[in-house]
C-alpha cells in the first residue's frame, strides 16, 4: 500500500470540493481518474502531494514515499532560456548519465542540450515524465498529461507509461478524459464527481450507468467507440 485515503473530505473556503473519498493505491498499480471539469481531480492530486490538507479524514502514506509529478501541459515563458538538462536538474542535481537514462525511459533520448522552447508538445510531456522519473518515484501522478496532444500522440504517451511501470515498477495515478485511449493501460478506473461515483475495471466502468450519466454519453456511441478500439486491426506495412 503506497497511499490510503480514509474518508477524506477537502473544503476550499466554504466550498466542499471532495467528500468522503476512500481510496488506496497499491504498488505497481495503474489507476485512471475520470471526471467532468470541477469534479475535484486536481484537488485530489494536490492533497496527494501535500499542497492541501484534508478538512476531514486522514491520508496515510508509506514512509518515505517518493512521488513523481507530471503536471498538465505546462507553459514556459519564452523569455526564460532553459535547456532540457538544466530543467531536469531542478531542484536537485543529477549526473548526466542518470539524466540520459531517464530521458531514454521516457522515450526521448539525446534531447539534453535542446532548449525547452524548441520542443514539440509531445516531446515536452516526455521530458516532464523523465524529470518525474529521476527521483525514482514509487508513485507517478499524471495530471491530464496528454492535453493538447493528438490522438496518436496521447496513445503513444500512455504506452510509454505502461512501459515505465513495467521497467521501473512504480504505481501510476493519472487524470484523463480519454477512457477509450487509456483503457488498455489501466488496472482500475475511478469516476470522480466530488465523491467517488463508481470504480472498477475499465470494462465494467465504461458499461456502468453512473459513468454514462456523469459524462452525458449516449450509450450506443460510446459502445461503438469502444468496439472500434478493440476490433480495429490493420497492418501498416
Amino acid at each position: 500500500m503506497l497511499i490510503e485515503c480514509d474518508n477524506v473530505s477537502v473544503h476550499i473556503g466554504k466550498r466542499s470540493i471532495l467528500s468522503q473519498i476512500n481510496l488506496s493505491v497499491n504498488e505497481k498499480e495503474i489507476i485512471t481518474v475520470l471526471g467532468p471539469n470541477g469534479s475535484g481531480k486536481t484537488t485530489l492530486f494536490k492533497t496527494f502531494i501535500g499542497a492541501l490538507e484534508p478538512s476531514f479524514g486522514s491520508i496515510k502514506k508509506k514512509p518515505n514515499l517518493k512521488i513523481g509529478y507530471v503536471p498538465q501541459r505546462l507553459y514556459i515563458d519564452e523569455t526564460l532560456p532553459i535547456t532540457v538538462t538544466r530543467f531536469m536538474n531542478l531542484p536537485s542535481r543529477y549526473s548526466s548519465d542518470k539524466i540520459e537514462t531517464a530521458l531514454g525511459h521516457a522515450g526521448v533520448p539525446g534531447l539534453g542540450k535542446q532548449q525547452i522552447q524548441d520542443l514539440s508538445g509531445g516531446q515536452f510531456q516526455r521530458v516532464l515524465l523523465a524529470r518525474a522519473l529521476l527521483g525514482k518515484p514509487d508513485l507517478l501522478l499524471l495530471d491530464e498529461a496528454t492535453q493538447g496532444l493528438d490522438h496518436r500522440g496521447s496513445a503513444d504517451f500512455y504506452r510509454q507509461i505502461a512501459h515505465v511501470r513495467e521497467t521501473l515498477g512504480c504505481a501510476v495515478v493519472m487524470i484523463s478524459h480519454e477512457l477509450h485511449v487509456v483503457m488498455r493501460q489501466t488496472d482500475r478506473v475511478i469516476c470522480l464527481n466530488g465523491h467517488i461515483c463508481c470504480q472498477g475495471k475499465p470494462e465494467t466502468v465504461s458499461g456502468s450507468p453512473e459513468y454514462h450519466s456523469l459524462f452525458g454519453l449516449d450509450k450506443d456511441s460510446e459502445a461503438a467507440l469502444y468496439l472500434h478500439q478493440n476490433h480495429h486491426k490493420h497492418s501498416h506495412s
Partner: peptide
Amino acid sequence: WSGLLLSTLNADLALASGF
C-alpha cells in the same frame, strides 16, 4: 535560486518538490 526558479516555471512542480 532553485525554489524561485522552479516556482517561476510552475507552481505545482514547485509544490511537488517541497517548495
